[in-house]
Write a protein that binds this DNA or RNA. Structure first.
Ligand code: ZN
Ligand code: ZN
Ligand code: ZN
Ligand code: ZN
Lengths: 159, 159
DNA sequence: ATGATTTTGAAATTCATTTTCAAAATATCA
DNA sequence: TGATATTTTGAAAATGAATTTCAAAATCAT
């Protein structure tokens, strides 16, 4: 029973009547230590480096717990497989996604958020979350297109 | 071979070396005549009122053609099933989605689009498409919550 | 410990979407 | 026109991400 740093996730589990287990703690820890935009596969692989017996289902379940309790949030990025990132109270960022190479670049714009609130208010909505995704071609891929002079047809594989 | 109005979709098929068929024309026509945010199921049902023998696969395939050629665009709205809407050159709108009743409200903001372009430019991206989705509770559902004084737990079913 | 409760992981299931493939429709051209 | 090549269709099978099932294992409260 190694203590996995003072992750408030365990606190939270207790509050919800859930148990803090070796698996959950490990998954939460690895998730919090990883860079954003991980797929479940990727997270599962990393987790298994420490404990190879952890099942996919548990990773999915824990990720859901993390999401429900505000530590993680799932993003779709135009693909079928979800990617997860950290969520920090009050902070928010959105994404530029390259349709060719799959690169994901983050940005934040208080101006846009402000305009969003105003629109929501006008329409009578109370907003809890939002997603702003800009799809296009990144600088690198634009340069490559320039080189070949051809339209690049391959789809982003995110591999 | 009834002519289904001057839908440029047929023109486009020809340009791409694809055939204009009874099924494709019918699916495209029904799609273009329908309100936005249809699911594939819903479109398929409507199409089958005219021709009950049209298969799901063909609806999916035609919708993909429509999307690739710029007539339709697919949206996800936080659910697993896609919804399709018309796309008009140069026009764009985004969405407010009620997490309780599933209501979808459209909006457009030139100010936001402008800020988006500026961000993309700064990051070296060339943007072709974007999605801005605001998730929250609509006025009606907020009113109901007020009435009961309780948090409403049901998820949007979009039924 | 004892027994109740929760969690786990492998396998099965779900469900939207895609693919397969043989039959049907359509185009090409002699 | 008829013969042949190509494309499209639709039913059924396959895919693939995510969820559920369930018996075994872990954990909790006496
Ligand atoms: Zn790129
Ligand atoms: Zn991010
Ligand atoms: Zn509502
Ligand atoms: Zn719309």
């Amino acid at each position: 029973m190694e203590k996995t740093s003072g992750l408030p996730f365990q606190q939270l589990l207790k509050e919800r009547g859930l148990k803090s287990t070796r698996q959950r703690d490990e998954i939460a820890r690895v998730f919090m230590e990883s860079a954003d935009h991980l797929s479940v596969d990727e997270l599962c692989q990393r987790v298994r480096q420490k404990n190879p017996r952890i099942g996919y289902a548990t990773v999915y379940r824990t990720l859901k717990l993390l999401a429900q309790s505000g530590w993680a949030s799932a993003r779709q990025f135009g693909q079928r497989t979800a990617r997860f990132e950290h969520r920090t109270e009050g902070e928010h960022h959105d994404h530029l996604i390259c349709l060719i190479c799959g690169k994901i670049v983050e940005f934040a714009s208080g101006r846009i958020e402000e305009l969003q609130s105003r629109i929501a208010q006008k329409k009578g909505f109370r907003i809890f979350d939002h997603k702003l995704e800009l799809y296009g071609h990144c600088a690198d891929c634009l340069a490559k297109k320039e080189m070949t002079g051809k339209e690049v047809r391959e789809k982003a594989t995110n591999e």
